[in-house]
Design a protein around this nucleic acid. Structure first.
Length: 773
RNA sequence: GGGCGAAUGGCGGAACUGGUAGACGCGCUAGACUCAAAAUCUGGUUCUCGCAAGAGAGUGAGGGUUCGAUUCCCUCUUUGCCCACCA
């Protein structure tokens, strides 16, 4: 018998799979009997291919998808498991700024490295469907998607205060600001007033919220999305300004019924009406307050919740009480939510009370409620529109050009893709424009314009948009591109989409809100456009946990505690051990700590599988059928465990099976079953085993009738405590009276049951008898 | 402050719908093989008492429901994640 040499057999099988394109997915694949196979489309959240290569966290994520893909493939599904790379983004660009290497080149190197590493893990991937978001043939269609949104008014420009990262020199979406810091570089963000592009995700807020219930997604993610959208129903009420009848302040409140207790109004410092409400006495003070709070960082606003504010000098009329109430400015009111102005009800709201107490404003108990609520009912959302402009070079150019009046025009679809121009220096300047602005020739473009009066079309010279799209736009449609990644007529081919989509299983460890909300938004939009036959893109979502260093801390280069998956493979363990270990490490959805010794344990297990299959001693040992029970039990357990994503217990069931076969000996059928059940986890070793036994890899079925043996163990409890275990003939399980008699005859039971039992409870399913003494 | 989880041996974890707590793996330990070591194989391993049979305790703490609770309910402690002046 040869030794188990993982690196050798893995190389052999990987070469074979590559040559034979074993994992190529074809629409409409059929069974031998001519019936059509059911489809199953699975994917992981595609990675950003960093220069550091594959991480053990990637391996966990991808292996979960691989186990499920192989499982469904073996079960007879027509499976599609493609792969792609999310390649636009700051790391490649920052590297370019630092070294002068073009991001295009660096990305190519990184993708090649990633692909080679993925192949060494033996993944079931249809490599003909590989995609890459920075490939012009891909981003051509990202730009097309943008234009569809633009045509419907769902991509629009707005001047507003935006989060600005002073280090990365770009604006950030709300989702990319974490506790006042840039999600990428960690530096403190500022507010800056700029004209920016947005996607109108709020248009779909209700549907995005209402459909959450129907998703087979983890509750954690569903709750986070629900909170993020943050719908609240209330009313908008106009308050007239005293002595300025042409002006009024509109406020939003969820409690219009408390209007009798409203004793003052508060406006956000950015509110446009403020300048009309100040007078000569208050003007300087209010202006100082407003500009100070604009400069205030998010951190300061979070750390110091002490109420601050200034009186504008004006009064409004409470429409319910007709009383005159002062109008204040305070930064605890946010411009982006509701109307940016509130009616303060200190008797009903803690924040308003705190403010009233600090500035000695009236606190009036609510003694009256209006029969008919004031104002018009209004629903608002915590979610804001999605800011998509990025002042960066390495992104998908926004396909827009401006005429001499500054009006935005779509680049015609036949001019797509708008290619990223080559520039020598990738650094953005301080003007707030990306490095694209340095490509002076590229900036000029001729766009056909039709005169609305004459109907004549002329070519007009315009200037291109220099902003690029948020990378999340590129990942908002890639799952559909997988259906027809090489199509040059459509972003996604309608027939292929109808066959494969929506995605059956999606697995990832990040992007609970951003990506997973954006892709749902685009799906609903393109469904409305008649371009997608479904309104939710992802049926089932698995959200896996992280893998930490052995000390439980996050792996990081600076701490020097990073485990490189390729090192694990090359140390001699091989990919099968790495894969199986990462499935065995714990429940897939919880964080886990790497344990080098446990890796060794899994390797020992695979070595035992090898010995069982290839040693003459064991494999020829036992032709008898006394392994049928354990074999059928194992098939049942592994099948059901994979179906409920309990990969760690599926592996442990296989370990038990092998341990048992070591004791009782294994017939060829036992080993073939082992090979089939092992294949999702350790596909190379399993293929080697199945090859030796000349077996296919079809998923084995179990025979319920073979799960029980002739003898059955009955648990005997007295007052709920275990006192004896009886071996009885299985058919006796029907005879409750007999079992009670046998139990009471047991010596140990008699020690605890002196008199006639008060009661007996027999649970047939649990094979348990409880005697109440 | 709000929301959602979690807490089980020396360690990672198992027990899926209330029914033998600790599967499987690591570690430790005894033995076999070996001149020896590694590898491999076979036992043991929650704690306390006992040679053993067995007994008692035991799933963060306290209470409750039940014949029976790691599992359900209440109170508390610790801890993780998400959101956080959203009117």
């Amino acid at each position: 018998m040869n030794r188990y040499e993982p690196l050798k057999i893995e190389q052999k099988w990987q070469a074979k799979w590559e040559k034979e394109k074993t994992f190529k997915a074809v629409e409409g694949a059929k069974n031998p009997d001519g019936s059509e196979k059911p489809k199953k489309f699975l994917a992981e959240m595609f990675p950003y291919p960093s220069g550091a290569g594959l991480h053990v966290g990637h391996v966990r994520n991808f292996t979960i998808v691989d186990v499920l893909t192989r499982f469904y493939s073996q079960k007879g599904f027509n499976v599609l498991r493609p792969f792609g790379y999310d390649t636009f983004g700051l790391p490649a660009e920052n590297y370019a700024i630092k070294t002068g290497t073009s991001p295009k080149l660096a990305t190519k190197t990184n993708v090649n490295n990633f692909r080679n590493q993925l192949k060494r893990l033996g993944y079931y991937i249809d490599w003909d469907r590989e995609l890459n978001t920075s490939d012009p043939e891909y981003y051509r269609w990202t730009q097309w998607c943008f234009l569809q949104l633009f045509k419907k008014g769902l991509a629009y420009q707005k001047e507003s205060y935006q989060w600005w990262c002073p280090v990365d020199q770009t604006v950030l979406a709300n989702e990319q600001v974490e506790n006042g810091h840039c999600w990428r570089c960690g530096s403190e963000v500022e507010k800056k007033k700029m004209k920016q592009w947005f996607f109108k995700i709020t248009e779909y807020a209700d549907e995005l919220l209402d459909n959450i219930d129907s998703l087979d997604w983890p509750d954690k993610i569903k709750t986070m999305q629900t909170n993020w959208i943050g719908r609240s129903r209330g009313a908008e009420i106009d308050f007239e300004i005293e002595e300025k009848k042409d002006l009024s302040v509109r406020v939003f409140t969820t409690r219009p019924d408390t209007i009798f207790g409203a004793t003052f109004l508060v406006l956000a410092p950015e509110h446009p009406l403020i300048k009309s409400l100040v007078n000569d006495n208050t003007k300087a003070k209010v202006e100082a307050y407003c500009s100070a709070s604009l400069k205030k960082s998010e951190i300061e606003r979070q750390e110091n919740k002490e109420k601050t504010g200034v009186f504008t000098g004006s009064y409004a009329i409470n429409p319910a009480t007709k009383e005159k109430i002062p109008i204040w400015v305070a930064d605890y009111v946010l411009i982006g939510y509701g109307t940016g102005a509130i009616m303060a009800v200190p008797a009903g709201d803690d924040r308003d009370r705190e403010f009233a107490e600090k500035f000695n404003l009236e606190i009036k108990e609510i003694t009256e409620t209006p029969d008919q609520p004031y104002g018009e009912s209004k629903t608002t959302y915590r979610m804001r529109d999605w800011l998509i402009s990025r002042q960066r070079y390495w992104g998908c150019p926004i396909p827009i050009a401006y005429d001499k009046n500054g009006v935005a025009h779509a680049i015609p679809e036949d001019q797509l893709p708008v290619l990223i121009p080559e520039v020598g220096d990738y650094k953005p300047d301080n003007s707030g424009r990306s490095a694209l602005a340095k490509a002076t020739d590229w900036l000029k473009v001729k766009i056909p314009v039709t005169d609305p009066e004459t109907g004549k079309t002329t070519l007009e010279e315009m200037t291109r948009e220099t902003d690029t799209l948020d990378g999340y736009a590129c990942s908002s449609w890639y799952l559909w591109r997988y259906a027809s990644p090489k199509d040059n007529k459509f972003a996604w081919n309608p027939e292929k989409i109808a066959y494969w989509e929506p995605l059956d299983i999606y697995c990832g460890a990040d992007h609970a809100v951003a990506h997973l909300l954006y892709i749902r938004f685009w799906c609903k939009f393109f469904a409305d456009e008649g371009k997608l036959p479904f309104r939710e893109p992802i049926k089932k979502l698995l959200y896996n946990g992280y893998i930490n260093a052995p000390d439980g801390k996050k792996m990081s280069k600076s701490k020097g505690n990073v485990i490189d998956p390729l090192d694990v493979i090359d140390s001699g363990y091989g990919a099968d051990t790495l894969r199986t270990y990462e499935m065995f490490i714990g429940p897939y959805d919880l964080d886990a700590a790497w344990n080098p010794r446990s890796v060794g344990g899994v390797h020992r297990f695979l070595n035992r599988c090898w010995t069982l299959a290839f040693s003459e001693n064991t494999s020829s040992k036992n032709p008898a059928n006394n392994s049928a029970i354990i074999r059928n039990k194992t098939i049942k357990k592994v099948t059901e465990d994979i179906e409920r994503n309990s990969f760690n217990t599926a592996v442990s069931a296989l370990m038990e099976y092998v341990n048992e076969l070591y004791k009782i000996g294994a017939a060829p059928e036992d080993i073939i079953t082992l090979g089939k059940l092992l294949k999702p986890f350790a596909p190379h070793l399993a293929s080697e085993i199945l090859e030796k036994f000349e077996s296919d890899d079809s998923w084995p079925t179990f025979d319920e009738s073979l799960l029980a043996s002739d003898l059955t163990q009955i648990i005997i409890q007295v007052n709920g405590k275990l006192r004896a275990k009886l071996e009885i003939k299985t058919e006796l399980l029907e005879e409750e009276e007999q079992i009670i008699k046998l139990a009471l005859a047991d010596q140990n039971v008699q020690k605890f049951v002196k008199n006639e039992p008060k009661k007996t409870i027999f649970v047939k399913k649990a094979k348990l008898l409880n005697i109440v003494a």
